[in-house]
Structures are given as C-alpha cells and as structure tokens.
C-alpha cells in the first residue's frame, strides 16, 4: 500500500511540475524559441531515472549471483522492465525534439544517440531472454548479463564528454540552455517516485506469478 502512496505523490508532483513548465519555463534553447523545448524537462528526467534504475538492476543482479534469492531476481527484472519503458520514452522525446531543432529524426553520426540506442537494444535482449527463462541456471545467466550490460550505461552518460558529439551536447551544463530549476527538480522527483512505485508493483506481480503455472501467466 505504501508504494501506491509514493506513486500517487509522484503523480501529483509531476502535475505541479507540468504546470510550472507550461507557465514559467523558458521555451528558448539553443537560440530556438519553440514549445518543443519544454520536452527537455521530461526527456532528461526519464533518461536519468531510467539509467539510475539500470544501476539498481545491476546491484540486484550482483546480489542474486552472490546468493540466489528469487526476490533479488524479481527486483532486477522489474527495474529493467520499467527502465526499458523510460528509455523508450527518452528516445521518442529526443527524436521529436531533434526533428524540430536539427530537422532530422535521427543522426547516426552522434555518439550519444547511437550509444543510447545500443543500451535500449541490450536491455531489450535481457527482457526477451528472461521471458523464456525457466531454470535456475537461466536466471543466473540473466543476472550475469544484467551486471555486464550495465557497462554500457556510464559509457552512454559520459559519451558527450568522452567523444565529439556533433548534435547532442552536454545537456545540463550547456551554455545555450536556461533551465527552470524548481520545475526540473520537481519533474525529476515525480518521475523517480513513479519509477519506485512501478518497480515495487512489478515485483509484486513477479511474486504472485510464482503461484501460477508458467503456461497460464499473462505475457506482459
């Protein structure tokens, strides 16, 4: 029940953040004045929360490898599933923003875009693998995969600093970006609370699934 309170609080915080973004935040980024720039607040917050969730999944998977308690595997699977949805939103919001500002949906020459897409594919593989996992050895391999896959996350986060990124600059510290900080922090807090609620909920679904034959479980 307390997870639902956190989820409700997160939703309320997101509503307040959206109101602030719509009324107070500047629509001018990178010298372009357009409402699409307001996507920034959601794009960055879902990306950060999604990546942080993958760190949680890696820690839970490492703990599972150390001592294979099913609860640890459930937390890792739940965190990856929700992070995957958040990463999908990150890619979608980024593509739409790029279409307006760069006049292009996608740029293969940009390191941040390509590494983010690689992370998305890597964790899509994890989810597909777990869908078919049946035995303890499968879950151990899945956990090892999750720990190794996490290497791709810091590379993506640091990519704009490590390599030349012709389109996607460093977001928060860029000169041409003026952020409404309270709105951004509220959006980040709201997204984090919603994330925690979704992971807790999905973990409970995993717990309930253990009492249902695999053939009768819904595939979602």
């Amino acid at each position: 029940m307390r997870w639902r309170v956190i989820g409700g609080a997160g939703l309320a915080t997101l509503l307040v953040a959206s109101a602030l973004i719509a009324t107070q935040a500047s629509r001018q980024f990178y010298g372009v004045d357009h409402p699409v720039n307001l996507l920034f607040y959601f794009h960055v917050s879902v990306a950060w929360v999604g990546f942080a969730g993958l760190a949680v999944a890696a820690v839970a998977s490492a703990a599972y490898l150390r001592r294979p308690l099913p609860q640890r595997s459930w937390v890792a699977q739940a965190a990856v599933r929700v992070s995957f949805a958040f990463l999908t939103l990150t890619l979608m919001t980024g593509m739409v923003w790029g279409r307006y500002i760069w006049n292009s949906w996608w740029e293969w020459s940009d390191i941040r875009l390509v590494t983010a897409l690689l992370v998305w594919f890597i964790y899509a593989g994890y989810l597909v693998y777990h869908r078919e996992a049946k035995h303890a050895a499968d879950y151990r391999r899945g956990a090892a995969f999750c720990v190794l896959a996490f290497v791709s996350v810091p590379i993506t986060v640091a990519s704009t600093r490590l390599w030349q990124s012709p389109f996607h600059g460093t977001t928060m510290t860029g000169d041409s970006v003026t952020i409404h900080l309270p709105a951004f922090l509220l959006a980040l807090a709201g997204m984090s609370a919603v994330y925690v609620y979704l992971v807790a909920l999905r973990r409970q679904v995993h717990a309930a699934d253990q009492f249902i034959p695999a053939s009768e479980r819904p595939r979602s």
């Binding site: 989820g7 997101l14 949805a85 939103l89 979704l198 909920l201």
Partner: peptide
C-alpha cells in the same frame, strides 16, 4: 509533438493500470 507529451504520461499510467 502532442502525442509525445501525452506518451510521457500515458506510458507509466498504462503500465500501472495493467499491472
């Protein structure tokens, strides 16, 4: 653009309702 703004809300809400 409007659909993406909506998706930011609807994807987490959809997952919550489904689960």
């Amino acid at each position: 653009l409007v659909a993406v703004f909506a998706a930011v809300w609807l994807v987490p809400l959809g997952l919550a309702v489904r689960w």
